[in-house]
């Protein structure tokens, strides 16, 4: 019996080692962030959102581009809570800094680097990922190949900085060496009792690929500065065939 327990212990340690080698930290820093993505946690290796890794987000359309930025901003607000600074690299930025406050970020704590070419954006991101004084690095670019993404992954393995690679309007959706691939789509917001107006931003979050995890689709709403999981998505989508309520506007 004793031997068996010892073996189990060894296997557990080995598994953790393998995870660490694959780019998932198992140190204390991985548990200090609570992203409020509770039902999703089971999908992640080790049960927490992998920090200190590069995540890829794909947004083929303008609407998903904006939604993805919203979702990333929500994640950033948790990462930056401890007075962090974030670098936002972009080859085609449209982000309006003021609005970041809505997502719980002090916009003046973000340093924007606007470059013309994707190559420059990659160079800046790689340099930034090596700087462990940053809380996170976001890069928005259109083209990246596998080798380039590997360099980014190697950079974070030493520094433990979290990187968000936002692949917008991609020319092709190639495989990258990132730990995950996400797709965020906007969903119609919920208004209470048919009141006029627009509700809280709501997204369909698809974790398309996650190394050592379980991909899946969830729905989240950004309400009062935190993510809120939506359990009954049906309510938000009006059933086809039913006549729509007449709208009244304020």
């Amino acid at each position: 019996m004793k031997e068996l327990a010892g073996k189990k212990e060894i296997i557990k340690q080995l598994k953790e080692k393998i995870l660490a080698m694959e780019g998932f930290s198992s140190g204390p820093d991985s548990h200090q962030f609570d992203f409020n993505l509770r039902p999703m946690n089971a999908a992640f290796p080790g049960g927490t959102f992998p920090v200190g890794a590069v995540h890829e987000f794909i947004s083929p359309t303008q609407t998903s581009f904006s939604a993805t930025n919203g979702f990333i901003s929500g994640l950033l607000s948790t990462l930056m809570k401890q007075d962090g600074i974030c670098l936002w690299v972009s080859s085609g930025r449209r982000l309006f800094p003021s609005t970041l406050k809505f997502f719980g970020i002090e916009p003046h704590r973000i340093i924007f680097i606007d470059v013309r070419r994707d190559k420059d954006a990659l160079w800046v991101m790689e340099q930034a990922l090596k700087c462990n004084s940053l809380a996170a690095v976001v890069a928005e670019l259109r083209d990246i190949n596998f080798a380039e993404s590997r360099r980014l992954q190697l950079a974070v393995e030493d520094s433990r900085v979290t990187g968000f690679l936002h692949h917008y309007f991609p020319r092709k959706e190639n495989t990258l060496a990132t730990v995950s691939r996400w797709r965020i789509k906007p969903l119609p917001s919920l208004v209470i009792d048919g009141l006029p107006g627009v509700g809280f931003p709501r997204w369909e979050v698809e974790l398309e690929k996650i190394r050592n995890g379980q991909p899946g689709i969830w729905q989240f709403e950004w309400r009062n500065g935190v993510f809120r999981h939506i359990t009954v998505p049906k309510r938000t989508v009006p059933e086809p065939g039913l006549p729509q309520k007449e709208r009244h506007y304020a």
Binding site: D83, W123, V124, S133
Partner: peptide, 21 residues
């Protein structure tokens, strides 16, 4: 008032970036 982060490193990173782009 960066608490845990050492912002001299960030300034140096930005200098590097400014030199390149």
């Amino acid at each position: 008032s960066m608490g845990n982060s050492d912002h001299a490193a960030i300034a140096e990173l930005l200098d590097n970036i400014a030199g390149k782009v």
